[in-house]
Amino acid sequence: MPNIIKAQSEEQFNDIGAGIIASLLQSNPKALLGLATGSSPVGVYGRLVELYKEGSVSFAQAQSYNLDEYVGLPVDHPESYRTFMNEKLFNHVDILAENTHVPLGASPDPAQAAAGYTELLRQAGRIDLQILGVGLNGHIGFNEPGDELQGFTHVVTLDESTRKANARFFSSIEEVPKQAITMGIASILQAKQILLLVRGGEKAEIIARAMQGPVTTKVPASLLQTHPNVIVLADQEAGRLI
């Protein structure tokens, strides 16, 4: 059973999440970090920036590998995940640009880009700490519910529910990409430790199903039950059913 932590406030949520990441970097400055985008980690990244500015943590020797990226968005597009990571974390800490890795969604051959990312992860070795969020349908990364799930980095067609959930970041749903490159479930589960960040009452039902229901590819996040070292950090609303 994953270790479930319920934060009493947004400040505590961010402090706990950032503290877990900072503690790893303090004990292992060369840590391999698996990073996620979305609304749940934003405050955690903000707190990490504060810790860096206070001199409490350094990313100088660390490497990062992001979970996913939209297919077809230029790297500098305001809604690309590369832009997100630059604006929320990378530009504000001492991580080396060449040590930050995000799938190349703008590649003219996304399938080849996905295969290249799989090889990059293989060469890197096991991620020390993988940060995750969860979608309303239970997806982790962009591994959408289905009869079977792919193990390694691949191109995925996004569920309509996922595109609708992400439409708030774009001018209209028509602008939301229909595909993404995502790490696969096997890559995620190979991490030594996983930190699942869950915020908001709309996530309460799916996180309860994922953590307490059957392990099924219909709820990809439920596969985290098979991992020996998972921390679920939830706010009060998201954690009210677990």
Rank of each mutant, 00 (worst) to 15 (best):
I207E: 08
P108N: 09
V219Y: 07
H227A: 06
R209I: 15
Q26V: 08
I188Q: 06
L241E: 12
S56G: 06
N99A: 12
E11D: 14
E148K: 15
E175Y: 09
G184A: 01
L233Q: 08
D94C: 06
G34N: 11
L224Q: 09
P177I: 04
G116S: 09
A60W: 12
G239C: 11
E69D: 14
D15K: 15
I181C: 03
D94P: 03
Y65Q: 01
R168H: 12
N3Q: 14
L196K: 05
I95C: 01
H227F: 10
Y65C: 02
Q193D: 07
H154N: 02
T37K: 14
T37H: 10
S80W: 08
R199T: 15
P110K: 00
G201P: 13
T118G: 02
P41D: 15
P103R: 14
Q26L: 10
Q112S: 11
I4L: 12
F170M: 06
R240I: 09
L73A: 10
I127T: 14
Q130G: 07
P108Q: 08
Q150H: 13
Q130H: 07
I5C: 07
V71Y: 02
T182S: 15
E202A: 13
P145D: 03
N229H: 15
L33P: 03
P228H: 10
F142Y: 09
D159V: 02
P110D: 00
Y45R: 01
I5S: 07
G43Y: 14
A36T: 15
Q63D: 04
G105I: 07
E174R: 04
R209E: 15
L136V: 12
G184C: 00
V102C: 09
M85Y: 02
V102G: 07
I206D: 12
P41V: 12
G138C: 08
P110V: 00
V71I: 05
K192C: 05
Q190M: 09
A36L: 10
L224S: 09
F90K: 00
N86V: 04
N99L: 09
S187P: 08
E119C: 05
L25Q: 05
P29Y: 05
E87F: 08
Y45Q: 03
T217Q: 08
G213I: 12
R122V: 00
L224F: 13
G125S: 05
Q112T: 07
N137K: 06
Q212M: 15
G46M: 07
H92F: 04
P220G: 09
A124I: 06
E10I: 11
D94E: 04
S9T: 12
T162F: 03
I140R: 11
V176W: 01
S64C: 03
G184Q: 00
N86K: 11
L233A: 06
G43W: 13
S222E: 13
F13H: 11
A97T: 08
S222I: 09
M1L: 12
A204R: 10
L35K: 05
V57M: 00
T226H: 10
Y81T: 07
G125R: 05
L33E: 04
V230W: 03
P228T: 09
I206Q: 13
G184I: 00
L32W: 04
Q112K: 15
Y52N: 01
K164H: 10
Y117A: 02
S27D: 13
I16D: 01
M211L: 15
L196Y: 04
D147P: 03
L158Y: 02
E69R: 12
H154M: 00
